[in-house]
Each structure stands twice: as structure tokens, then as C-alpha cells.
Amino acid sequence: MRAELEQVYRQHRQALFALALTITGCAGLAEDAVHEAFVRLCGMQKPPSGRLAAYVFAAVRNAAVDCCRRVKRERIVAETLFVVATISSPLAADAANDELAERLSREIDLLDESTREIMVMKIFGELTFDEIGSVLNTPAATVATRYRRTLMTLEERLRRDP
């Protein structure tokens, strides 16, 4: 169990941190939330049913919500989810692509909280819609619809002139 948890952490640490950051809006609180979630998970006696990664995402999300409640902080994204200046894409050499990536990250930051959660869990956490639905207590079909609608919205916004 401990080894599996460590593997999940090493594989998804950025996505888990991004999910917590989406909810808390503060890097320090997000780190606290991730740490708190793993402390709780390490105290578990039995492994959870289903995929462990999805369970860890749910635990981190719950811990982030608890952290927000504890400090009574409004859930506003004060800090961006992405490293804006550094783009590890092969297209990064292209200035237009750099600009596009910056715009894209800005647009994602401007999305509402639940949509950003879906984006992070789907794209960076590689969770299925069913798993995301179970984390958010939302039907998988609803999650899928919102995800596709968000992609369409982002495409439309990127197509416009800056």
C-alpha cells in the first residue's frame, strides 16, 4: 500500500498539486492539502476499491476543501497553475506558439473552479470520466459534457484575436 501510494505520488505529484492549487488558490495551502491527504492515506488499513490514483485525487481534493474551510479563504485563483515562461514543447522555439501557450494557460486560469478541476484531472491526471465523476460526485456524462464544452470554448477564445 505504501509503495503504491508513493508510486502514485511520484507519477501525479504535479497534477495533485495543481488540483489542490485550483481549489485553494494558494501554493502553500495546496502543499499542505497534498501532505495532509497523504498522511491520511498512509493511515489507511485497507486499500480502497477501484483505482488508487482516482482515490488519491479525491483525497487531495477533500483535503484542499478542508484547508479552505479551516482558513476561511475564498476560492479565487490567485496563483496560476502553469509555468508561463517555460514551455517544453518542440514548438516552443516558435514565438507564435509561445504566445499561444501563454494565452492558453491564461484562459485555463480564467475558467471556473470546477471546470479547471475537470481539466486537471482529465488531462494531467489522466483519469477517466467515470473516475472524475466519482471524485466530484457528478455523473460521468455530465463531466464529459462539461469537458467537451470547455474545450470548444477554449478553441473559440484562442481563435479570436488577442
Partner: peptide, 25 residues
């Protein structure tokens, strides 16, 4: 678009988080 989003680099958590979580394991 999904590929482009995936190519974005997420923020790295602080080093202290790794230490805290790994010590927890």
C-alpha cells in the same frame, strides 16, 4: 487542443512538499 494543453508545464510544488510526503511514506 488537448495536446497543446498537455504540453503546458504545470507548476512544480515546493521541495518541502516532496520531503514531507516522502517522510510520511
Amino acid at each position: 487542443l488537448e495536446k497543446r494543453v498537455r504540453e503546458l508545464t504545470l507548476r512544480e510544488p515546493g521541495d518541502t512538499l516532496d520531503q514531507r510526503v516522502l517522510s510520511c511514506f
